[in-house]
């Protein structure tokens, strides 16, 4: 068994694990009760699933130019997924799309009305 075979097997394992995580993330999107819990499913398993798929691709393609692109995709996924979930979660909170029965404690709603954030850049 040559080293390319080893890399191919590792690539296959990464691709399968990535697909499984993405599938579970999709399942979480359906099964979790409210928007905020669903954002958890959309950020965490989905990001790692994508990273695993890309690692698998990198191991199979073994081309440094593609590797750079894959790294960029990972970088942007890591930096944009939290922002996307933050924007959706923030909007949901302000629009009242939060199921308070599901919350053990809620330290934001108490202060949301009275707080005024100063505006402007530093």
């Amino acid at each position: 068994m040559s080293w390319t075979d080893v890399l191919d097997v590792a690539a296959a394992a990464c691709l399968l694990a990535g697909c499984l995580l993405s599938l579970l993330a999709a399942l979480g999107m359906i099964r979790f009760p409210d928007l905020l819990s669903r954002m958890h499913a959309a950020t965490k398993p989905q990001v790692l699933g994508l990273v695993l798929v890309l690692v698998g691709l990198g191991l199979r393609l073994r081309d440094e130019r593609t590797l750079g692109l894959l790294l960029l995709v990972v970088l942007f996924q890591f930096s944009t997924a939290p922002i996307a979930s933050h924007m959706a979660g923030r909007a949901a909170f302000r629009a009242g799309q939060v199921d308070h029965d599901l919350l053990v404690t809620d330290e934001l709603s108490e202060t949301l009305e009275s707080h005024e954030e100063p505006r402007g850049a530093p």
């Binding site: 579970l24 993330a25 979480g28 979790f32 965490k44 398993p45 053990v104 809620d106």
Partner: peptide
């Protein structure tokens, strides 16, 4: 990721909280 993925499979609903 594994935690959230397993939670998605658990039958009962999750209880959450919002903290400062």
């Amino acid at each position: 990721s594994v935690q959230v993925a397993l939670l998605a499979l658990r039958p009962r609903t999750v209880r959450n909280s919002v903290i400062e």
